Computed example of a mutant assay.
Amino acid sequence: MTVAEKVIKPTKAGIFRTVFLYTGQGESTLLVIPTGSKVNDYMFVLVDCDRDKEPNEIDLIEMFKDLFVTDGELSIFINTHPHNDHIGGIKEVYDEIGFSEVWHSNHKPGGEHKKKYKDFQYVVEKVGKSNEYFLLGSNALNKIRTSDDKEVIKNIGLVDYQILSPAEYLCEDIEDADANERNRRIHEQCGVIKFTYGKEAKSILFTGDSDKKAWQEHITDYHMDNLPSFVLSASHHGSRTFFKDDEDDDDVYETHIENIKPTYLIISAPKQDDSPHGHPHDDALELYKKHVDEDGIFHLGANVISVIVDIDSDGNVDVNTDKELIEEYGKGNDDDDDDSSKNTARNIYIGSQTSKIDNKPMG
């Protein structure tokens, strides 16, 4: 059995597993979604893609090759927005691994993101119009928009999802804008998706790089009752833009997180000194700490870990850290070879985790 199979594939039926993969300054999360009552009844969905040459980041292609060496396949790629650190390497993943569907925000960027966006367009063309879906906000469960503009109910296994953003009227507004305005508003048009599972329903909320304007003007008021989530993936790698327009903005926005009420927060970012943008921002961390207990905050880059969240069919949740994927598939590990880095990852950036996590994958 390969490391990827051991860590990622559940050994019990009916587990919804979410693997927040360490990819440095970027984001890639693998969903293992139950589809039936047998141990091997699962489908695999990738939310965002980041594949470049940062130290220790997991090579998605090598990991997927090992994950699917005996069975299974990647079914869907969901892109919250087409920035380089959320679509980087997707052409190679498609060519080497393959997947049948693409869900995306339908944003058209320019500037520095154009090259990788062309790679993303290549993938969309390859899967074909009938397998392309648009993320548009809805109060309905499991509703998505086809590429020919039809709203459809589309189930993905036994897990429910709800698309909270972007709003349709916003997409229409941005579509008519020039390239500079589109680039400026890409985070406003970012996909925000909630996945829910279990009899006592537990949810994981993916926020992409959605910003204060998106939440304040388009998401929170409209979806207030649908915001509560057990696990929150921190927007924009722990950037202050979730709460503020900029560092000097005194009009701090917290209504969204007051209603999300997360128990766990996952921050996909490298060590702060290694981030070109200083992620996660100190002022954002202080705001997050007002709403999430310190032992529930996981910054992937602080100890170079991935985080695995398991929800069973009753709604019980287990959260564990993992270093095996990084040790096996990480690139440039020479700076992380000391013994302490390969022991338990209990000191995760903020506070000290004791009873809630260890370094063993669930199964």
Rank of each mutant, 00 (worst) to 15 (best):
M1E: 05
I8L: 14
P10K: 05
P10M: 09
T11N: 14
A13F: 04
A13N: 11
F16K: 09
T18S: 12
V19L: 14
V19I: 15
Y22D: 01
G24E: 03
G24C: 09
G24D: 04
G26N: 05
G26Y: 02
S28L: 05
S28I: 02
S28K: 02
V32N: 03
G36C: 08
K38T: 02
V39Y: 07
Y42L: 11
F44D: 01
F44I: 09
V45P: 04
L46E: 02
D48C: 09
D48T: 10
C49P: 03
C49M: 08
D52N: 15
D59R: 00
K65M: 03
V69N: 10
T70R: 15
G72S: 11
I78G: 00
H83E: 10
H83R: 14
N84Y: 08
N84D: 09
D85S: 14
I87S: 04
G88T: 02
K91R: 15
E101T: 11
H104E: 05
H104K: 03
S105C: 13
S105Y: 08
S105L: 06
H107C: 07
E112V: 02
Y117S: 04
Y122F: 14
S130Q: 14
Y133N: 07
L135Q: 05
L136C: 06
L136Y: 04
N139Q: 09
N139K: 15
A140E: 12
A140S: 11
R145Y: 00
S147A: 15
S147M: 08
S147Y: 12
D149I: 03
E151S: 08
I153V: 15
K154Y: 08
K154A: 07
N155V: 01
D160T: 09
L164K: 02
Y169S: 06
Y169L: 01
D173F: 11
D176A: 14
R182T: 01
R185I: 02
C190V: 00
K194S: 06
K194L: 05
F195A: 06
G198N: 10
E200G: 12
S203E: 03
I204P: 01
I204Y: 01
G208L: 02
W215N: 10
I219K: 01
D221I: 07
H223R: 03
M224I: 14
L227S: 03
F230Y: 13
L232K: 04
S233K: 11
H237R: 14
T241N: 12
D249V: 06
V252N: 08
T255W: 07
H256K: 06
N259E: 07
L265R: 02
I267G: 04
D274H: 11
H277Q: 14
D283C: 10
A284W: 01
L287E: 12
K289Y: 03
G296S: 12
G296A: 12
I297Q: 04
I297C: 04
F298C: 11
N303W: 02
V307H: 00
V309G: 05
D312H: 10
D312V: 09
D314M: 13
G315A: 07
N316T: 07
N316G: 02
D322P: 09
D322L: 13
E327R: 15
E327L: 13
N333S: 05
D335G: 13
D339Y: 09
K342P: 00
N343T: 10
N343Q: 13
T344N: 15
T344E: 14
T344H: 14
A345M: 12
I348T: 08
S355F: 13
I357Y: 04
N359G: 15
K360P: 00
G363P: 07
